[in-house]
Simulated scan of single mutants.
Amino acid sequence: MLDWDRLRIFHTVAESGSFTNAGMRLNCSQSAVSRQIRALEESLNVSLFTRHARGLVLTQEGQELYNTAREMVLRLEETQRTLMESRENPSGILRVTTMVTFGAVWLTPHLEQFMTEYPDINIKLILDDADLDLSAGEADVAIRLHEPEQADLIQRPLATFHSHIYASPEYLDRMGTPVTPSDLDQHDLITFGISNVPTIRGLNWLLTVGTPKKERSPRLQINNLYGVLHAVEAGMGIAVLPDYLVHNRQKLVRVLPKVEGTPFNSYYCYAPELRGSLKVALFRDFMVRQIRAESNIL
């Protein structure tokens, strides 16, 4: 297999017409250039140049190799220009996955600003409470609201999220407002049913907070965060909800505001193969800016 460095030096020598001129262009000595050409000739077992007083002339074999090398250099230069242009004007599809409620309630409204800033980047948003396999190419990036389980992914911390207890004004008017955590024993509690989502599993602390006795029994169980939200808005009971889900929803009131669950972290994840992707980096920076701007409500 041809050594690319030697082929690059050969192309420069053929363009320059002498070892001296090629050395000046390559910023190395004439003898170093000569040694590389000699090594290339020995590896191919052909003579590439005819040497005479006026300089170097390509042999027939040298001309064939030069034609190939020139085509390669031109294609590389074209690729470099394309890459430079793509860094200045990123384009194409970026596939983003995250859990359903976070993606639908918080992320989707924010995408308008990103798409305005980068009109040539198209977003494919994949909402799924299961973790898609980024290494298998099921998505480009993932926003995970729990510590990623795929150790081979690049993981960048985004933010820490909080959860509190919420109810509708109508429910509180009908059933009264809890003053202490133990008062929850007298209320209709809405919790999460069986779920494989780590974040949702961690939101069922309403059943144990403030009670040294046995775990409370929920009045209603729903295995979907959206379903829990709508049940609370409908006045069916009290539930724990992530604060990002409740922001700007006028139908909900925070109950026992000083009581909150264990905060959970979010991560921006992508496969190592996309480490140099400008689209991935731009979306990561966008997410960081948006979350920092709203850190007081998340």
Score class of each variant (00 low, 15 high):
Leu2Gly: 00
Leu2Trp: 10
Leu2Val: 11
Asp5Gln: 14
His11Cys: 04
Asn21Trp: 03
Met24Gln: 10
Asn27Ser: 12
Ser34Val: 01
Ile37Phe: 12
Ala39Thr: 13
Ser43Val: 01
Ser43Trp: 02
Leu48Phe: 11
His52Arg: 15
Ala53Cys: 02
Glu61Tyr: 12
Asn67Gln: 13
Ala69Phe: 08
Arg70Met: 04
Glu71Gly: 09
Leu74Glu: 12
Glu78Phe: 09
Arg81Met: 10
Thr82Asn: 08
Thr82His: 09
Asn89Arg: 14
Arg95Ile: 08
Thr97Gln: 08
Trp106Asn: 01
Trp106Gln: 00
Thr108Gly: 00
Pro109Tyr: 00
Leu111Tyr: 08
Glu112Trp: 03
Phe114Ser: 05
Met115Lys: 13
Asp120Val: 03
Ile121Gln: 07
Lys124Gly: 01
Leu127Arg: 10
Asp129Thr: 10
Asp129Ala: 05
Ala130Gly: 06
Leu132Arg: 15
Leu134Cys: 06
Ala136Asp: 08
Asp140Lys: 04
Asp140Arg: 04
Ile143Gln: 01
Arg144His: 06
Glu147Asn: 04
Pro157Cys: 07
Pro157Ala: 06
Pro157Ser: 05
His162Arg: 14
His162Pro: 01
Ala167Thr: 07
Ala167Phe: 10
Tyr171Arg: 11
Tyr171Glu: 02
Leu172Pro: 13
Leu172Trp: 10
Arg174Trp: 07
Pro178Lys: 06
Ser182Tyr: 02
Asp188Pro: 07
Thr191Lys: 11
Thr191Leu: 11
Gly193Arg: 06
Val197Leu: 14
Gly202Asn: 15
Gly202Val: 02
Leu203Glu: 03
Asn204Gly: 06
Val209Pro: 04
Val209Tyr: 05
Lys214Cys: 00
Leu220Asn: 02
Ile222Thr: 03
Asn223Pro: 00
Tyr226Lys: 10
His230Tyr: 15
Ala231Lys: 08
Ala234Lys: 14
Gly235Val: 13
Met236Asn: 14
Val246Lys: 06
Val253Asp: 02
Arg254His: 01
Pro257Tyr: 07
Val259Ser: 04
Glu260Lys: 14
Pro263Ile: 07
Phe264Leu: 12
Tyr267Leu: 07
Ala281Asp: 09
Arg289Thr: 04
Ala293Val: 01
Ala293Glu: 10
Asn296Cys: 00
Ile297Arg: 08
Leu298Thr: 07
